[in-house]
Structures are given as C-alpha cells and as structure tokens.
C-alpha cells in the first residue's frame, strides 16, 4: 500500500465539511493543524477544537477517517491538540467567502488578544467595527445577542433588509 502525499492528504481533508456549517471545510476553518504521512503508508492528522465544548469534534474525527479510508488509507491516527488555541484568524480567505455566501457574516476583525493582562474595563464597549449583512451588504446592522445559534456566532439584524443573521465572532 502506497501512502498519500502531503498534498493529497490536504486535498482529501478539504472534502470534510464542518458538521454545523456544511458550507465550509475543516481545512478552511483552520481546525486541521498538521498532516503527516507515516512510513507504514498510514497518516497522522492533528486537529484542534474550535470551542472546548464543541459537540462536533467526534463527528469530525469520524468523517476524517471515512474520507481517508475512501481514498485508500489505512492506519489513520487522528489526534486532538489544545494548544495553540484555535482562533478565527486561521479561517482562510476562501473560507470567509464561503461563510458569507452561506449567510453567515465572517469575522470582521482579528481575534482579541487574551494572553497577558486583559483590559476588563474595555470589554463591555461594543465593537465599533462595521458588520455587513451577508444578505444585502448593508452596514446598517445591529447586535441582538452575543450568542447566536452556536457559541461561535452572535446574532445580528439588518436594518435595511430586516433579516436576522449570524455573525462569526472574532475568537
């Protein structure tokens, strides 16, 4: 059995979609941290959870195995790694476009720095960055709730087309 190359492994993994946002792959989302073909023809895949309570991790691991097995792979090892902690800064540009096309506004700024001392007195200040409505493009949008349909998204409403939408929070 001849193992797949690095490139072929990444291509296989880009077919695995996120179970909660099927429009985007786990590669675009930045969940796959490394892939390593092994000498025995198998491979080692390292993934990281988006949120510590993310219920999709087991499904993602299972889907990775299925896709690679379908590609002829055996001895697939999938490891979960906590550090460095996942950030929305790792979502690819292509991934952000896919989110927008799917109706989810992608993160409009880089993740807040949480290492070192945090300026807790500034946390309650509402972000002054403009979040464009993924439906009509208007920037007349308003935050409804810090938590949307999942922990990684906030709920917004567009003042022009009046549609509510999810915003992928910088994390």
């Amino acid at each position: 059995m001849v193992g797949l190359s690095d490139k072929a492994l990444w291509e296989c993994l880009s077919q695995v979609s996120d179970p909660e946002i099927p429009a985007i792959s786990i590669v675009d989302l930045g969940i796959v941290r490394s892939v390593r073909p092994c000498a025995d023809g198998g491979c080692e895949i390292v993934i990281t959870p988006t949120y510590s309570g993310c219920p999709a991790m087991h499904v993602i691991e299972e889907n990775i195995r299925q896709v690679l097995q379908a590609g002829g792979m055996e001895n697939i090892q999938v490891h979960t790694q906590l550090s460095p902690a996942w950030t929305t800064d790792w979502i690819t540009e292509a991934g952000k476009e896919k989110l927008r096309a799917f109706g989810i506004a992608p993160p409009a700024q880089r993740a807040m720095r949480t290492s070192g001392t945090i300026d807790i007195s500034a946390l309650s200040v509402i972000d002054d960055v403009e979040i464009a409505c993924p439906q009509c493009g208007s920037i007349k949008t308003r935050l409804i709730s810090q938590f949307g349909s999942t922990a990684c998204k906030a709920l917004y409403r567009c003042g022009d087309c009046l549609e509510p939408f999810d915003y992928f929070k910088p994390h």
Partner: peptide, 11 residues
C-alpha cells in the same frame, strides 16, 4: 486549558 477557556469566558 486556561488559554483555551479564557477566549470563551471573555464573551
């Protein structure tokens, strides 16, 4: 664990 959790707790 702290680095992972604090990103959530800030929200």
């Amino acid at each position: 664990i702290a680095e992972k959790s604090i990103k959530e707790v800030v929200y």
